[in-house]
Computed example of a mutant assay.
Amino acid sequence: MIRPMQATDAPDVLALLNWMDDAPEREVFAPDAREAAELRGECEDRVCLVAEDVEGTVQAYCGLAPFRDGLALEGPLGTGDLHALLARAIERSEGLPVYAFSARDNLAVREALEAAGFTPMHTTDFYTAPVSNLARHARVPAGYTTVDHLPPEQYRALYRASEDGWAERLEWTDLEIEAHFARDDVRLVALLRGGRPVGFAELELDAEAARADLTYLAVHPAERGQGLGRVLLALAAAEVAAYPEIRKLRTRAHDHAHAARALYAHAGLIHCRSVVTYLRDDTEGEA
């Protein structure tokens, strides 16, 4: 039976999340919470469904959360009837575009997504390397300087110019940008020439995982071809090296980002995981 998730289901859904964590090939986009109270709070404003067997045991979970211009699918996660669970979630999507994210090797979920009308958009590959290996190459080239903060208008302009696919933060207000970089776990390394920003590396620190994520690496198109990507990568690692509890740097690149992939391979980062992004959009073709 498929039904809305109840507060009493939190332990069973947590067990499914831990089951997912035990094997990389089971990865899907899912709630961050790993405590019952946090999970209940995270699910309060979302569509959350579970599938249970004839004995009432929760076997699978699926949810919908606001995302971009539509919704993000959490799951499907578990060993139950993923097809029926997905169909019920789609019924609750109110015709909005639904994005889904699955490990490339999660063949059961990918088959269910594609059978439900989700189309693969791109694959994102993740790469990692020890911080110390990358930081030893850190240097600021002659004629350049670095800063750890940019005025919102400069950050937004460089963000807009650097990559057509980056759109999310263009809608952020100045206050939202300032609040983001005021977070304790966020760092910015911006490279300037003649006082003008030409690139930046943005980091999110995760001391618990002993890892830092390089969330954005941007070089203005007019400044490319000079090795500034390698410079920013090394400077970002040097920033992370100030935190001895963080030992690895992780970054990512979509399958069409050939320059980024070449940069990471040249710098010695190793591929560690791949995630496929899917979209189901019933509004396509509408006037």
Rank of each mutant, 00 (worst) to 15 (best):
D45V: 07
D45H: 12
D45C: 03
R46V: 00
R46S: 04
C48T: 03
C48I: 11
C48N: 10
A51S: 09
A51E: 04
A51C: 11
E52Q: 12
D53Y: 02
V54H: 05
E55R: 01
V58Y: 04
Y61A: 07
Y61Q: 01
C62T: 00
C62P: 00
C62N: 06
G63N: 04
P66K: 02
F67P: 09
R68V: 09
D69G: 09
L71S: 04
L73E: 09
E74C: 00
G75N: 02
P76G: 10
L77C: 03
L77M: 08
G80Q: 10
L82T: 01
L82Y: 07
L82M: 10
L82S: 07
H83F: 00
H83E: 13
A84E: 07
L85P: 00
L85Q: 04
L86Y: 07
R88N: 06
R88S: 09
R88C: 06
R88F: 02
E91L: 03
G95I: 01
L96F: 03
L96Q: 15
P97M: 13
P97T: 12
P97S: 11
V98R: 03
Y99I: 03
R104F: 00
D105R: 02
N106T: 02
V109F: 05
V109K: 06
A112Y: 13
L113F: 15
L113N: 08
A115E: 14
A116L: 10
G117M: 11
G117H: 13
G117R: 12
F118A: 10
T119F: 12
T119N: 13
P120S: 01
P120T: 05
M121Y: 09
M121E: 14
M121A: 05
M121G: 08
H122G: 04
D125S: 13
F126M: 14
F126E: 15
Y127M: 15
Y127C: 14
T128S: 15
T128Y: 06
T128V: 12
A129G: 10
A129H: 10
P130S: 14
P130V: 08
V131Y: 08
S132Q: 14
N133A: 15
L134V: 14
L134N: 13
A135D: 13
A135R: 14
R136K: 08
R136C: 02
